[in-house]
Design a protein around this nucleic acid. Structure first.
Lengths: 171, 171
DNA sequence: TATTGTTATACTCTATAACTATA
DNA sequence: TATAGTTATAGAGTATAACAATA
């Protein structure tokens, strides 16, 4: 019986008008935590999942390029990749044209992990949208995309990566 | 020139179907960061803002009660309150009926801070919803609330409090 | 000299376990 | 004995700066 932290107050002291901002913040955190729990079943952290996807989309990028995209410092990135490489998910290869670069490629086990991640993402989406019919889901996605555009968020860019270890949360 | 981390990959490897979950996670993080920047102008962290609101809504709660609601351990809560009390925002008072309890009350400066926070929350909501007309905002809030209910999230409960120091982010 | 990757160092944040004072 | 608050200690996470290899 892990007693859920009941009635935690909001960081947003919005009385009546402020609703969307708080709901977005609340649901976003909830969605992130739920996704973290899902990838944890694959023995992955969200950051690791993000790296695998980045390497999968564009194989052969070198480390600092990827580090910048994930928003982490090159020095942290080393240990981060060390763990992933030891598990046989990605492979470091010295770039023959310029031996200073370590290019990253997906290993067979990494391809397998990607399939698991795709499955997890679909299940995650479905679980989160429970209660909304297909039309409502499309309408919601449209409104959210409008906000994302107005806020000038790059499509597919998630700002919450720096954190390597997801928070375990009783909720 | 702080170069924004361009094209960071998503932690959610959703190809086509998975949209709402990622957008919620992305926008939620964005909203949280934007709010953190706003309260930072008042020299407050989101957690401090949350505490002030909690004390404002229910004055006289004792520390462990509030610590549990904010999702932090009693030991961390001590230093957390120390800083807030030193700034004259809240006041600790020994409960005369049971002197083990330290009850928390809003100090005059805390009331003043609450007014600033209310203003900040309204401006935050407005900035975030730029581009949506009033009808769309209501529709969006409705859909988000439906999801929150389906996910059994308590209204007004934000899970992202444990973190005391908000991430400063270039984005 | 400049840059990539790496390592080393110090610093912050957090969790856990003692300790005290009240009951 | 049990509980609220506090303090102390150790551990994890992070940032920054140095370093070696390559260009």
């Amino acid at each position: 019986m892990t007693e859920p932290p009941d009635r935690a107050p909001s960081p947003h002291p919005g009385p009546q008008g402020a609703q969307v901002a708080f709901l977005l913040s609340q649901l976003g955190e909830h969605a992130s935590q739920a996704f973290a729990r899902r990838v944890a079943e694959l023995d992955l952290t969200p950051a690791q999942a993000g790296l695998l996807r980045a390497v999968s989309l564009a194989p052969g990028q070198h480390q600092q390029e990827l580090a910048r995209r994930l928003g982490m410092s090159p020095s942290r990135f080393v240990a981060f990749i060390d763990a992933i490489e030891e598990r046989g998910l990605v492979e470091r290869r010295r770039n023959p044209k310029d031996r200073r670069f370590q290019d990253l490629y997906l290993a067979p086990k990494g391809e397998e992990a990607m399939r698991g991640l795709a499955e997890a993402a679909l299940a995650h989406e479905e679980a989160l949208c429970t209660g909304l019919d297909p039309q409502e889901r499309i309408a919601l996605a449209g409104l959210l995309r409008r906000i994302a555009e107005a806020q000038q968020l790059t499509a597919g860019v998630h700002p919450g990566y720096r954190r390597l270890n997801p928070r375990r949360d009783s909720v």
